[in-house]
Design a protein around this nucleic acid. Structure first.
Length: 494
DNA sequence: AAAAAAC
């Protein structure tokens, strides 16, 4: 592996990279950086966790110049949180060279962004929609752009940003340099590259690095109804420092985080229906460790780099195998060990096998923990806490009291009472979650494709008794039906 | 069928 000091970088950049704690370049960095500095267009196939941000961030910062008063580089990002994080990393890389990076994303007060733009940052990291908003308002000028980076390009295309990206690429000067990063290389990405890139060089990180080596991967076969109790037991037994729990829908994330709080865990949810300031504050609290459990939709699956995430729980198995790789990649970062645990209902076993095929990695089946094991786990935690107090705290003020107590009681009874008080015993608060629709195979989806929107879909719902019995408002069901109804525009083309 | 993203 090459050292950063051997890659032909300027002293300022080497200094900031060393300051960030990096010495050796990762494979994707070693291959990308020299070529990008020479000015070549590059297509990089790489997952998150491979050091991708620095792979494009270092050459990007190297190419920037101070004092021109223009935006010179743009990074496009699929989610707002990722934009913020990439901007933070670029600011660190540009620290000594005096290169400023500004994140530009939706949900944030636009006047604030306009004021920040007046400080003339050289680099912008943006989500497509808000960038186009600024283009229309003429609060960003793109005519001096020298370098464009498309980060997580496949994800941006999946989210329907094709046209936005095309519009943006048409607005930047033709003689710019373009780097594109994507975990997968579908035809749509190749088309985009062919249209907007100049003789791009293809760089790929080997398939065996698709899943990160230091993440242990387990799965538990559970019934839908058991999931919540099993999750609580696992949290009790494993006592993760920081854990992320992934749920399939936004509503489910709300219910899960509420349920966890009722059971005494400090959990918060994050998904796309929350206000941006709420999303920002939840993420910040999680990074600070104020929240132990982050409950998330796939909004948090990609790219987010939160150090110290020890456990990832897939409460619902992800929809597509790609998403699994991204979710578990939130743990085991920076060489640390991580554990990923996936809940699988009996009918979802096929989905699990698909994931195993993609990752070329067999997951280890684990037994569902019993209540007794969970209690033992809690007791162990209490004991460890107690021993830590003995080692670290000043017990002087309590010793007199202890002696008094010992005159009337025997020591074992006293200690047992103290341990019982300190132990969080799993309690019987009932938590109800709305069932999620079971995953169906691609083939099954095709079979039931029913553009007229009547017949088996709605009936099937009630037959399984989802919305009715829980006494939830019929209103919600109505609204969902309305939205899910027949839309002529959603017909597949061709 | 779900999630994400501009006001």
């Amino acid at each position: 592996m090459a050292l950063f000091s051997e890659l032909g970088l300027s002293e300022d950049v080497i200094r900031s990279v060393e300051n960030m704690g990096f010495e050796e370049a990762t494979p994707i960095q070693e291959q990308t950086i020299p070529k990008a500095i020479k000015g070549k267009d590059i297509i990089g196939q790489a997952q998150t966790g491979t050091g991708k941000t620095a792979a494009f961030g270092i050459p990007l910062v190297e190419k920037m110049q101070e004092g021109l008063g223009q935006v010179l580089g743009i990074v496009l990002s699929p989610t707002r949180e990722l934009a913020v994080q990439v901007a933070e990393e670029l600011n660190k890389i540009g620290q000594y060279k005096g290169i400023q990076t500004l994140p530009i994303y939706g949900g944030q007060e636009i006047d604030r962004q306009i004021r920040a733009l007046k400080k003339r940052p050289q680099i912008i990291v943006a989500t497509p929609g808000r960038l186009m908003d600024h283009m229309r308002r003429r609060t960003i000028r793109l005519n001096e752009i020298q370098m464009v980076i498309l980060d997580e390009a496949d994800e941006m295309l999946n989210m329907g940003f094709v046209e936005d990206i095309q519009t943006i690429l048409q607005e930047v000067p033709e003689d710019r340099q373009t780097l594109l990063f994507s975990a997968t290389m579908p035809k749509s990405i190749q088309n985009l590259a062919q249209r907007f890139m100049k003789e791009p060089e293809f760089i790929s990180v080997k398939a065996k690095e698709v899943t990160v080596a230091n993440i242990e991967q387990h799965y538990l076969e559970v019934q839908e109804k058991q999931k919540f109790d099993v999750l609580c037991r696992l949290l009790d037994m494993q006592s993760p420092e920081l854990a992320i729990v992934f749920g399939r829908t936004k509503r489910r994330v709300d219910e899960l985080s509420e349920g966890l709080n009722k059971r005494g865990y400090s959990a918060e949810g994050i998904h796309g229906d929350l206000t941006q300031s709420k999303r920002d504050s939840v993420l910040r609290q999680f990074k600070e460790g104020t929240i132990e459990v982050l409950v998330a939709t796939d909004v948090a699956a990609r790219g987010l780099d939160i150090s110290g995430v020890t456990h990832v729980y897939n409460f619902d198995i992800p929809q597509d195998p790609e998403s699994y790789v991204h979710r578990i990649g939130r743990t085991g970062r920076a060489g640390k060990a991580g554990l990923a645990i996936t809940f699988v209902t009996p009918r979802e076993i096929g989905q699990l096998r698909l994931i195993e095929q993609l990752t070329k990695h067999k997951m280890i089946r684990k037994p569902v923990p019993t209540m007794v094991e969970a209690i033992e786990g809690q007791q162990r935690i209490t004991m460890e806490k107690l021993l830590r107090v003995i080692a670290e705290e000043d017990l002087g003020p309590y010793q007199g009291l202890a002696k008094d107590l010992l005159e009337e009681n025997d020591s074992v009874t006293l200690l047992a009472a103290a341990l019982k008080m300190l132990t969080k015993e799993p309690d019987a608060i009932e938590i109800h979650l709305t069932d999620v629709a079971p995953l169906r195979s691609k083939a099954a989806q095709k079979r039931s494709f029913n553009p007229r929107g009547y017949g088996r879909n709605e009936r099937g719902r009630n037959d399984r008794g989802y919305s009715k019995e829980r006494g939830q408002s019929n209103d919600r069901g109505r609204r969902e039906n309305k939205r899910g109804g027949w839309k002529p525009t959603s017909f597949p083309k061709g």
